[in-house]
Design a protein around this nucleic acid. Sequence first.
DNA 1: TTGTATGCGTTATCAA
DNA 2: TTGATAACGCATACAA
Lengths: 353, 353
Amino acid sequence: MSTSNKPVPRRSARGSSAGDERTGPVTLQQVAERAGVSPSTVSRILNGTAVVSDDKKKAVDDAIKELGFVPNPVARGLAGGRTLSVGVVTQAIDSPFYGGAHRGIEDTLLPAGYSPLFISGHWDDTAEARCIEVLRSRRVDGLIVLTGRMDDEALKGLARQLPIVVTGRDLSAPGVYSLNFDDLHGARLATEHLLSLGHKRIAFIGGDPLHPDSGKREQGYREALQAHGVAVDEALLQEGNYQEESGLQAIERLLASGVPFTAIFAANDQMAFGAALALHRRGLRVPHDVSLVGFDDVATSSFTVPPLSSVHQPVYELGRLAATAMLDLLAGRQPEAALPAPHIVVRESTAAI
Amino acid sequence: MSTSNKPVPRRSARGSSAGDERTGPVTLQQVAERAGVSPSTVSRILNGTAVVSDDKKKAVDDAIKELGFVPNPVARGLAGGRTLSVGVVTQAIDSPFYGGAHRGIEDTLLPAGYSPLFISGHWDDTAEARCIEVLRSRRVDGLIVLTGRMDDEALKGLARQLPIVVTGRDLSAPGVYSLNFDDLHGARLATEHLLSLGHKRIAFIGGDPLHPDSGKREQGYREALQAHGVAVDEALLQEGNYQEESGLQAIERLLASGVPFTAIFAANDQMAFGAALALHRRGLRVPHDVSLVGFDDVATSSFTVPPLSSVHQPVYELGRLAATAMLDLLAGRQPEAALPAPHIVVRESTAAI
DNA sequence: TTGTATGCGTTATCAA
DNA sequence: TTGATAACGCATACAA
């Protein structure tokens, strides 16, 4: 009546006595038995580690298909030291800007058999360090760092342990591949667009000064002005922090100061949205009274009222390229991805003076 | 001169002969040696699996601290069957709507020692099934499904294998916890807000009919109208797909049809943005000529021109609660999280007729 | 080309 | 309360 008391296997009884009632996932071992080969052979076929005879290969492939075998990444991670996962240190998992990059990364990693592991650093270097700890403890095979605050040296040190792709900076070191936007050029484009429309009194709303790209964008603004013989009026420069609210406040300050301007270049779209709202509240129309151009060209910018002219950043492409470069690094190839040059998308928020 | 040819350990030499030049992470084994106890004891202390004497516990704790030991989740996953990770099936990693939920999930899982594994289903049930396969192969301890297309039965089946928290539907089954917005009530609130402002010709832009919440929102609209003695005019209902463009087209169709209306209720904010743009293109002002209310209250809605009145969905809270419920399930507790009721945020896109 | 044996770092079983 | 010891599922060094 009662079951015998002989010791039972630790977990569920795989391939139990009667019938086919398999419980739990199929193992490589089972595939090997089914195909009549050794586990090593199956492993070799799976990883292309060695040449195996065609007939055995076929037998194994068949067994895999019949059994619906799927390798266990956890075991693979333990045994081979590879987890087929790559850590992605982003700044905010819900960032409207990096969102595109996240999608690009996911879209290219998944088909390659790798899984991205996203984690947010919140623009805080100690938080970033913690993220990296978590990721390393999970034995990710590589690291994609989307911009981030940690310094170059720390990154180089990390690169001795695992391959790294970093965006938002130029950094060349062994095991590191970097991908960078040309923020300077982009900002120049935005300013020149306004200039070409006849604007001379162009306000600038800067991004978070702690972000490296922020300075570049301001520099591009200054350079374009100077190149066109327009003196930069420091009263026209307002500091922001890349959030909508800061753009709104910047324009309110500017309006309150009484300094005249006919156009605004915001260092990102979110601040441009805030600026547009500030203008609207004062009864100023875009672009009739004030022209407005943003930076990043986030998804919603095509549908604001009016649609926002903006410097397009190929963020999705950035994600794809970063992931592709990581795949290259992981495969021992030298990545050669490069970002397309920025360009401006002219919509309805800018007009001739 | 040359190094000896005796067989070397498979990977790097841990705890090598001379000095302290440890390579690679510290292992539990090393902690055990250092503390003068067996590995099992260390494991027990780590997991609280059994009571251990205070002195040994202290010795182990010290060793852990001195060595900077950090358990290897991969090995844990293999041995114990727990990976301390939970899979999150979302619809788009860059969704402006679910973004808040992702953040909520991350914010609550990470401090608890769990890592979220995000993967996008793209509103496609076969893609969703693939996602779940990937997640299961990675041996996640639980699954959070943000809405999704897969049917209840499939979910119930899955729940026999691992705990599941699902949003966007009511589903009670063993191992499943569901969290649902009251879309019906929310839609009623939006419509009643418009009604209270004196509007009677209220257009409705529906969401993707394939989404379950879409029907609820339409139903709420209809019920509110009827409850207030306003006949619903089918000509006022336009179909959308939750994207901005579809909102724009819906209003263009409505305008072209010549059917009069003084207000619009869009089933989500993104379509409301499209609608606002369509209105703007025709020279119609919001809210002066047409009142507009959205649904979801996404982050950007506070900064559109004009700021959008919308039914607030506690998405971040949803993420937190889903993750909390998952933690409960994982710990063998019965979750009791419940979502707050929807409420409408009145901003500047609605006005009395 | 293939199989055997061993180890990856941890948890779980069992006996002490 | 504690310690051997055997898994977990796979990859690799080595022998054949």
